[in-house]
Design a protein around this nucleic acid. Structure first.
Lengths: 143, 143
DNA sequence: CACGAATTATTAGTATACTAACAATTATAC
DNA sequence: GTATAATTGTTAGTATACTAATAATTCGTG
């Protein structure tokens, strides 16, 4: 295999990541979830951590602050999250789920899991571990 | 491994794909390439195929028509590509590289290859084949 | 304490991704 | 052959990703 072939990983990676997001987004729409895939990821993490600074959320999700600001704006407009003032740092907000936000996560979680698993048909646990190892290696190589 | 863990592939995939693009984009900037990663992919494919309808290009790259329209607009503004009328179908354009576009691809190709290979440090040909197999399986599962 | 440096979130600007709608053209059906 | 359907590319609108710049606040060092 020459290096040219080798470097085609980036094309496959980009293509696949786009299709995964696109597939999930279409299913979200068909099922009337009324949120985007990225908004879902934010909701899910807030559910698991109760309350987070936008900062911490950005780090967890590997997204930048401006992107987070906008996603949270949208989620607040939908009544799924709230920004509360931070008790000790007036620069920060503590973001958390509203009661509706909690309900949303609990309702959608099993459905999202099914949507995600669709991609994995015909692949094994061993494949999963390999895949994870390679993705993490690439991620760290570029860090 | 439970299914919840299993479905985390999508997060890793998205995260890694973003970092790969981000890394390349930063290097492009540092080295003064003056194009984006996606613009590069279009140039590269045009170099290999001489002349393509936007349609065909979109299919090759797995991008949609509006996205292609805008990328080609930008490349034409930079003097790297041209739209020529299709001899038999007045709806279509034949897109091809200008002389400057050809020069650009030839100058940047080896540099881009090096940038791409950085991600692959510490990984083997066997890893590459595994990775490719898994990405393609996922892609097809969602197709 | 005071001043400069660092941090937090936001805004603005550009690029890409996707959907929907549209105009022009071509293909198809009857 | 003409009406309808399909195709090609574009435009518009929303969402995300990234950079750069900014305002408000906090930290750190003297």
């Amino acid at each position: 295999m020459n290096e040219e072939t080798f470097s085609s990983y980036s094309f496959l990676l980009d293509r696949t990541a786009r299709r995964v997001k696109q597939y999930a987004q279409q299913r979200f729409k068909e099922l009337g979830f009324n949120i985007t895939v990225d908004q879902w990821i934010v909701l899910k993490h807030l559910y698991e951590h109760k309350e987070l600074k936008q900062n911490e959320l950005a780090e967890l999700l590997f997204k930048d602050n401006p992107t987070l600001t906008r996603i949270i704006d949208l989620l607040c407009n939908k009544g799924l999250t709230v920004r509360n003032t931070h008790p000790e740092d007036r620069r920060s907000f503590m973001v958390s789920l509203t009661r509706n936000g909690v309900k949303k996560v609990e309702q959608l979680s099993p459905k999202v899991k099914d949507i995600r698993l669709k991609a994995w048909e015909g692949l094994s646990t061993r494949d999963f571990n390999q895949f994870k190892k390679i993705l993490n290696t690439i991620y760290q190589n570029l860090g």
